[in-house]
Every structure is written in structure tokens, then in C-alpha cells.
Amino acid sequence: MNNCERSIFVSTKEKVLSVLKNAPTTIFSGVALADQLHVSRTAIWKAIRELEKSGYTFEHLPNGYRYLPSDVLAIDELGSSFIPQGNISLKEETISTMMDARQAAAAGCQTPALFLAETQTGGHGRFGRPYFSPKGQIYMSLLLEPSQTFAELPQYTLLAAVAVAKAIDEVTKKTSEIKWVNDIYLDGKKVCGILSEATSDIEIGKIKHVVIGMGLNVSIDSAAFPDDIKERATSLFGGKRPPILRNQLIQLIWQNFFHLLHALPDQTYMDLYRQKSFVIGKQVSFTRQGHTYTGIAKEITATGELVVQTSTESISLSSGEISLTAIEKS
């Protein structure tokens, strides 16, 4: 069984959840559920308890149970015309969703495929930096099979950044910003990191697979962040209850992404990326080949390079080799 396949075994817990979710306004007694599923009332009671431990919520009424909207990642709520339900994999815990996507690519998984986890033990960003991954946020990676040359590939990281930023603006009613090249900022602090990787087929000279991974902080109390990132990291809704379920937000992000992707070669996404830039017009510092440079970020090219004007020259920075070490505060 490859990484894209799921067991066809359905537990009593899953059957109970399916019945209740499919009729959210209906009250089901324990007896009715037991009769419908051909199990004991005790099995129904245990299933409800297990589901509640997993984060699902139900209204307990004198005459039975009723399903309430629950912020639990669920494959049946994530499938769409862009990413079929059968191409979605969900784990409670994983080392990283990027690794899951790479393994699925090697196993011949159908694409596009989406890999999600409630928490990661080894998530990382650019240059291998560790990524804080507490439970209850969004950690996901999208696997694509573009079969294009490197020159033909769209700027996936930039495109994904725009898709996420648009979704954040819609659900928070605030204005997010993008720090070149792959970080989304809200209220001056990082709220999301994006990482893209590509693998090539040397024999045909094309990119075979692309993986786009992202970690998005949805609801984390500011005091919960580690000391080393507390002053520069945030979440969409702080420690408050989000007004949108994660399943809905994930769908919105990928809906934005595929709409932008299907609109190519239209460059609207690049215009939006530049408009949301966290760095254009600011003084930035970076290190290249052991030398530290300081200059003004002037523009972002059509190929995603950041053009910085120093006191002596104009330098174009590639996202794959350079990380900004400092940005002038507004």
C-alpha cells in the first residue's frame, strides 16, 4: 500500500462520526445508533467518548446526541475539485509533511496530493531551520507533478505565498505582508512559513515533482511560543477560538492557489506579491560568500529575485542562496 492509500477498515468510532456528521441537525439516541450500526449501546458510548478526546464536539441531550462543528482535520471535509479526497493523507503525528510527500512521490502517488498532520516532530524551513510545530495548527505539503523544465516552472513559492496571504486577509479582516521570499507576516510578526522543493528527471531534462510545504499558526497564545521566537512569531487569532475551522481555511488556501496557477501565464500573482512585500523600500542586510551587504530593497523580478541597491552596486538575490539577516523596522 503506498502513501496515498488508506485502510478500508472502518471502526465503530468512524461509523458513528459519519452518521452524526451527515445529519448535523438530527438528534440520534444511543439506541438508534446502536441499532443502525449493529453494535451495543456501550460501543456507541465509548465511540462518542473517543471522538470527544480527539477534538470532536457533540451536544448531549436527554434524547440523544447531535453533531456540532468541530475543529478537527478531516479528509472528507478537505477534498475538492482541485485535490480529490482519495489523494489526501492525514496523520496525527509525523516527522514532516514534506518527508511524507517525498516518500509518496517515490512510491508513484497520484497527484496533486495533499499531506497533512496535526503535529510534526521534525518540521523545518529554509536552510534546515527547525519549525515550531505545536498541535492544532496547519502543517501540510502539496505534491505536484508538473513535468516541465526548470525554466518553464512557475514561481511556486511566491504563488503559494500569495494564496495564503489572500486567505489570511479574508478570514482575519487584516492585511498580511510577505517577507521575501517565503514568510507571511501579520501585525509585524511571522505567522506562516513556506518551503518548496523540486526533483528532476535527468534523462528527460524536466522537473518531475514539486513539493510545497507550509506551516501556519492558527491559534497559539503569545506566551506559548519558545523564548527565541516569541518576539517575532504570532498566530492568526492568538489564543482565541478561530471564527473559521481549519478544514475551511485549508480549502480556501488551495482554492486560491489553483485559481492562480490555472490563470498562468497571467502575472497577477506577481503583482499581488509585490504589493504585499514586507521588504520593498526598506534597508536590508544579507551575507554572500562571507561578505555582509546592506542596501535598499528595490524590486522583485518576474523570476522572484530580490534586487538590492547597495552604495556601490545593484545586486540580484536568489531565494535559494540568500537569506535576509536584517530588515529595517517601519
Rank of each mutant, 00 (worst) to 15 (best):
M1A: 14
E5T: 07
R6P: 01
S7M: 06
F9R: 09
F9D: 04
L20M: 08
A34D: 08
Q36N: 08
L37G: 09
R41D: 11
R41Q: 15
K46P: 00
K46R: 13
A47R: 03
R49V: 14
E50T: 12
E50D: 15
L51Y: 06
L51T: 09
G55E: 13
F58I: 14
E59S: 15
P62L: 09
P62V: 11
G64R: 04
G64A: 13
Y65K: 05
Y67L: 10
Y67R: 02
Y67D: 08
P69F: 07
S70I: 12
D71G: 03
S80V: 10
I88S: 06
I88F: 04
I95M: 04
T97F: 02
M98Y: 01
M98L: 09
M98E: 09
A106P: 00
A107Q: 13
P112A: 13
P112H: 09
H124T: 15
G128A: 12
Y131E: 14
F132C: 14
S133N: 11
K135D: 12
L142N: 10
S147C: 10
T149P: 01
A151G: 01
Q155K: 03
Q155W: 04
Y156W: 08
A161N: 04
A165E: 13
I168Y: 00
I168E: 02
E170C: 06
K173S: 14
I178K: 02
K179F: 08
G188Q: 04
I194S: 02
I194K: 00
S196G: 07
S196L: 03
E197H: 05
T199G: 03
D201K: 10
K206F: 05
L216H: 01
V218P: 02
S222A: 15
S222P: 00
A223N: 11
A224M: 10
R232V: 14
A233P: 00
T234A: 09
L236N: 02
F237Q: 02
F237V: 02
P243Q: 06
L245S: 11
L245M: 12
L249A: 08
I250Q: 01
I253D: 09
N256K: 02
H259Q: 14
H259Y: 05
A263Q: 13
Q267E: 15
M270H: 08
M270D: 10
R274Y: 06
Q275G: 10
V279T: 12
T287D: 07
T287E: 15
Q289T: 12
H291S: 11
T292G: 00
T292K: 06
G295P: 00
T303V: 13
G304Y: 03
E305H: 11
Q309A: 14
T312Y: 03
L317G: 10
S319V: 11
E321Q: 11
I322P: 00
K329E: 15
